[in-house]
Nucleic acid binder design. Structure first.
Lengths: 258, 258
DNA sequence: CAGTATGTTGCGTATTACGCAACATATCTG
DNA sequence: CAGATATGTTGCGTAATACGCAACATACTG
């Protein structure tokens, strides 16, 4: 019985050990032999085998191509497919509402799919006659939208080339960044400042700001931001909104760390 | 100790119960209260609480916005991000090699990312002077490649419209399907036959065939197929290769069912 | 081939997970 | 609103399970 602190509910040891096995196999780039798991848990290998075998029977671990080492199994996949969207939306919706309320503009939550950003939730602007509409379910290019640039903020030239290819990027407006080198500079700026902007790079009449949401490892898992008509988001207000988005992204990031 | 069969290694009961909790929460479209989990496991609620709390402490479950119900937590996300590519590649690589050997053409494994297919592994054609090159890491449109069409085979008009929007699809060749209605017909055909073809719809000189890989629930999780120069893949050989791809896809699908 | 490493199974018992009861908090009903 | 009920959380003793040991099976190495 592992007591972390006197006031905390003790955990179920066997379940914890099973989860440690799962995490170790997930961390490994190679299939993991039982011996490594035995070293990890520090208990007798027969016990480790029974834990790992339970995970395998339930499809959380698998033996690839009849070998003896373990990799993650299809049950993890089924789990993750349910996880991706609805749970993140559940977590972030209150934050989206707060961002929309604070800025008075339409706020969106986006995740990355391939070379595109997918809007998975939004909260519409309140008290505005003219506003950017909700685009939940829509795909946008990563490279010329604030939400997209926030999602790829950590990528450098080689990674951006791998993602988008060698050819120039398609221009959507006169202001669209079309070269990988310029995009890499923009991404580095996003990384440094903690927020991204889109100054008429995708739509002529629209300015956006967005900030990356990071998980415990520092990986960017989503982005949150606002879009507004150009006239309502002058440079100074843009900066204020960017800071607000950035603060809220950080709060969400904190809630993703167990 | 739950003995399914006399010759099978017994599983660790507490770990199994924890996994059952995880699966139940993943299956639910709503946050799950402890009471429902208690009903599911059929044991005392204090024990269920301790199992669920262990999962929560480890980040596999979470309480959204301070509520008492459970949803999947960020550790599941971390697990799944490691799972997606490398494990599927590990499972499928031998099958890819076999498909390339059987057909004599370059074989690819693809997954869906948004509106695109991503090639995540390939095995190059052997004994060919001119062959389609390996495209691992490249994104392709879903709607005009065999691998892509195999990935969206189960989608109907409404889902395809949601995915691609209302506007006509961009033509890559004279033969590209550019209307959602025609694409839906093509997808229905893929679903019925068990394989997809690309007859110069993306590249003028290339024909492809591909088949969907399904998991236990019947969901399409990847596609596997070959690409060859037009001259080497006449209609009759196309059909043979399609059957070969389909057979191998089915074998992979079977290995994804614990 | 013999020795060693690694994976798997059987068995007895030490340890842990369980159930019960009490307490805390939230919700519902008249 | 007060009282009853439902639901979540904690403490404790013990029944049941998970553990370690040993044996067996399989694979690898010199």
């Amino acid at each position: 019985m592992q007591k972390k602190a006197a006031l905390e509910t003790p955990s179920i040891q066997s379940l914890g050990r099973g989860l440690s096995i799962l995490e170790a196999v997930a961390q490994s780039s190679e299939p993991v032999p039982l011996r490594n798991l035995t070293t990890l848990l520090g208990i007798d290998r027969s016990s480790v085998f029974r834990l790992a075998n339970t995970l395998k029977q339930r499809g959380f671990l698998a033996h690839p191509n009849g070998r003896k080492e373990y990799v993650l199994g299809p049950s993890v996949w089924r789990l993750s497919r349910k996880y991706g969207r609805s749970t993140l939306v559940t977590f972030c919706h209150e934050h989206l509402k707060r961002l929309a309320a604070k800025t008075g503009e339409t706020a969106h939550l986006a995740v990355r799919e391939g070379t595109q950003a997918l809007f998975i939730d939004h909260h519409a602007a309140t008290d505005q006659v003219v506003a950017v509409s909700g685009r939940t379910g829509d795909f946008m290019p990563l490279y010329c939208t604030a939400h997209g640039k926030a999602l790829i903020a950590d990528l450098e030239v080689a990674e951006l080339t791998a993602l988008f290819g060698d050819a120039p990027l398609q221009a959507h407006t006169k202001r669209t960044i079309v070269s990988i080198d310029r995009l890499a500079e923009a991404c580095a700026l996003v990384s440094a400042k903690g927020f991204a902007t889109d100054d008429r790079e995708f739509l002529e009449e629209v300015r956006c700001v967005a900030a990356p949401i990071r998980d415990r490892d520092g990986a960017i898992v989503a982005s949150i931001g606002i879009s507004a008509p150009l006239t309502r988001l002058p440079k100074k207000r843009c900066l204020i909104a960017a800071r607000q988005a950035s603060d809220i992204a950080r709060a969400i990031s904190a809630s993703l760390m167990p």
